[in-house]
Amino acid sequence: MLQVKNLKKSFKSGDTIVAAVNGISIDVKDGEFASIVGRSGSGKSTLLSLLGALDKPTSGEIKVDGQDITSLHDRELIKYRCQRIGFVFQGYNLVPNLTAKENVMLPMEFGGVSKNERQKRAQKLLDQVGLKADKQKRKPAKLSGGEQQRVAIARALANNPKLILADEPTGNLDSQTGEMIFDLLHSLSKTEKTTIIVVTHDQAIAGKTDSVFKLKDGKLDKRNK
């Protein structure tokens, strides 16, 4: 479902040009649960932002279901981010002034889902990720890190995306909670038949995924499995 060819992204910082992603080509199959590993600064987040159309590559090609997303116009990009992609961040990034449920409803509002439908689905998703009913009405500050990440996962699933991109989703959590979150993602990839690409430092986590892409200096070092 995902084909990346010779993807490059460089940043200018001062006089020097940093090639954050420097010619990466990967393939991910439909429903695959893949992980990206590599040292800090190896280009993992940059690659993810290109896949999620948060940024435009300097060159190269990203095909999702055969469509090249690098040539999309602004309005189509917004639609792509809204409908096809679900993002999970290391720092959860919930909107602080909204309750857990309202956070999950947000992408559906952007996608034009009716209010009634949004409420029903948000509740269902929060139940599914294991957030108890009384906590669904809480604002993020009143939830633990693990709970916030569950809400973030529910939010990522809101519009039934084809692809979930998670950037170190367990990075801020203790190992036990991290494992629970990872297992949640893992099981969702099976039940929802969603393709998931997760960036991680944790070798143990990476070991459980269908495929592992190891990056080094913006290049694909090796592919395991």
């Binding site: 999620g52 948060l54 309005r75 917004i78 639609k79 981010r81 809204c82 409908q83 993002f87 961040f89 990034n93 909107v95 602080p96 947000l106 992408p107 952007f110 996608g111 939010r155 519009n159």
Partner: peptide
């Protein structure tokens, strides 16, 4: 700024 970035990342215009 971060909140605005998040809203954009999850599909807000």
């Amino acid at each position: 700024t971060r909140e605005i970035g998040v809203l954009k990342a999850i599909g807000a215009s």
